[in-house]
């Protein structure tokens, strides 16, 4: 017997799918800007491990010499990124969906168990509701990162008018490093996110488009409670 279980609200799905192309464009145009002064890399004891970015990378994506274009795209799509993010935040706060999202006291401990389970080291997974402990941490972090990108972006965009913000971000130089690092963070998040989505399968993926999951119950016809369950803070103990 199949039942429909509501999972993601419309606004969550809408902002998720708007954010994907908008963030891609922001990263793409951001590369045009970064190229003009590509000062960052990772080195240990003077030995350069990674240079952001190697020439083949720039050439492959046709990055060089497009600073003006990059700024023009970046300063248009920043509005969509900001407004979409604001919409998501407002929805999450006012709907109470944040209760399902933000990490709980035991999430950090549980996230290890989730990781061990995902790596096939541990057989069982701690009981969860909408998001498991690792998801709570990852999805909250990505929202905090989004806020960070807007704030550090504004700090390097208008460092004189928003001098207080620039100061809060650790100064012009550091704000630019943070802005860049957050972008690298999105790319790493994206890779893991895609792998997890593939592993989680179709039912999970569909829920981010149509909003529901289909659950197979073993029992025969039995009246199910309302598909939208009330948030239960005790869910970890169920």
């Amino acid at each position: 017997m199949k039942i429909i279980k509501e999972k993601h609200a419309f606004l969550m799905r809408w902002t998720h799918w708007v954010n994907f192309p908008v963030l891609t464009i922001m990263i793409w145009s951001g590369l045009f800007i970064y190229w003009a002064n590509d000062a960052y890399g990772i080195s240990i004891f003077g030995f350069t491990l990674i240079k952001f970015f190697p020439q083949w990378f720039y050439d492959y994506f046709h990055i060089p010499g497009r600073l003006a274009e990059g700024m023009a795209y970046h300063f248009l799509f920043m509005w969509f990124f900001f407004i979409n993010g604001l919409l998501y935040l407002a929805y999450t706060i006012f709907s109470g969906a944040w209760r399902e999202l933000i990490p709980k006291r035991n999430s950090f401990k549980e996230a290890w168990l989730v990781l061990l389970h995902d790596l096939h080291i541990r057989k069982t997974i701690p009981p969860q509701k909408k998001y498991n402990a690792a998801q709570r941490i990852a999805y909250t972090a990505i929202i905090v990162m989004g806020i960070g990108s807007v704030l550090t972006g504004l700090a390097i965009y208008k460092p004189v008018q928003f001098y207080w913000l620039c100061w809060l971000c650790g100064g012009y130089h550091f704000a630019r490093i943070l802005h860049f690092t957050l972008t690298i963070g999105y790319v790493l998040f994206f890779v893991i996110h895609i792998i997890q989505v593939i592993l989680a399968g179709w039912n999970n993926f569909r829920s981010v488009i149509s909003g529901f999951e289909v659950i197979n119950t073993k029992t025969e016809i039995k009246p199910e409670p309302s598909p939208v369950e009330k948030t239960d803070e005790q869910d970890g103990n169920k």
Binding site: E69, L76, W79, K158, Y163, C166
Partner: peptide, 23 residues
């Protein structure tokens, strides 16, 4: 894109002040 740049300029000029000094 040029229209967007010009509109964005108008928005951010609202924050310009001679009291905002460069560090």
């Amino acid at each position: 894109l040029r229209r967007a740049l010009n509109k964005t300029e108008l928005f951010f000029r609202n924050f310009f002040s001679n009291n905002h000094l460069v560090k």
